[in-house]
């Protein structure tokens, strides 16, 4: 599977399609850290939430880089399941690199308040980003051309999902469980007290269940569409 992951990453990076999401990441980081230093948990909680749509968009761009016929050639070469999984894993590798850069960047510009204990805040920040990555990949995959079959449908799926994640994720939402807990995680990390183990377990289980459902849908749609 790794040759296909490498091939897709190489195609994405060499083709120049990485530039728009890379610029978007810089803008997001500029907005979050431009106003001065914040406690690590708060900063990273918002960073994870703000990166969510960018990571979803980046996933869609990566999966759409390969021409449809080449995707079918890859399917013939490695099998349908491996072909689909390799795309998701390539997106995951890229998303984790972006998250690592996003978490390292504020240290260069004094964006983290170092007067308070850093360990728990940084650990929760890592968790917040890890909880944002799989749902973002799932949304990007559901918006990819292999599923939506067209640019317009793909953009519609991506934008609708990104808006719903924010709107349904707001406090007091009628159906927060319809979307991954991106906003809920950001809220939990920006409270007066850091969240305890039960709250974190709930957020993790929620994200895992949501991703499982979304990726199951993706697998089903990929099975029925070439």
């Amino acid at each position: 599977m790794s040759p296909l992951i490498r091939m897709r990453l190489a195609g994405f990076l060499r083709g120049g399609r990485m530039l728009p999401p890379a610029i978007a990441v810089l803008v997001v980081l500029g907005v979050i850290y431009g106003g001065g230093a914040s406690p690590a948990a708060v900063a990273y909680g918002y960073s994870a939430a703000a990166l969510f749509p960018v990571l979803a968009w980046q996933t869609k761009l990566l999966l759409d880089t390969e021409p449809d016929v080449q995707r079918r050639l890859a399917r013939v070469a490695v099998g349908a399941r491996t072909e689909a999984t390799a795309g998701l894993l390539a997106a995951a590798v890229l998303a984790l690199v972006v998250c690592a850069l996003a978490m390292g960047a504020p240290w260069l510009f004094n964006g983290i308040d170092t007067t308070k204990a850093l360990g728990p805040g940084v650990a929760l920040g890592v968790l917040a980003h890890l909880l944002a990555v799989p749902p973002a990949i799932a949304v990007g995959a559901l918006a990819s051309r292999a599923v939506t079959r067209g640019v317009r449908n793909g953009v519609a799926v991506l934008v609708t999902a990104a808006v719903l994640v924010v709107v349904l994720g707001l406090q007091g939402s009628v159906a927060p469980w319809l979307v991954p807990p991106v906003m809920a995680t950001a809220r939990a990390l920006s409270g007066r007290e850091l969240p305890g183990a039960p709250a974190l377990a709930l957020l993790t289980g929620w994200a895992a269940l949501w991703c499982a459902a979304a990726l199951l849908g993706y697998a089903q749609l990929r099975r029925s569409r070439s």
């Binding site: 195609g11 060499r14 050639l73």
Partner: peptide
């Protein structure tokens, strides 16, 4: 093991011919 030659080869890819074929060999 199936080999498929599509009617139109998808040439819109940022690889050289040699690089592409070496990668496809690895894929297999």
């Amino acid at each position: 093991i199936v080999g498929w030659v599509p009617e139109r080869f998808p040439a819109d890819q940022p690889f050289t011919a040699g690089d592409y074929l070496h990668r496809m060999a690895e894929l297999r």
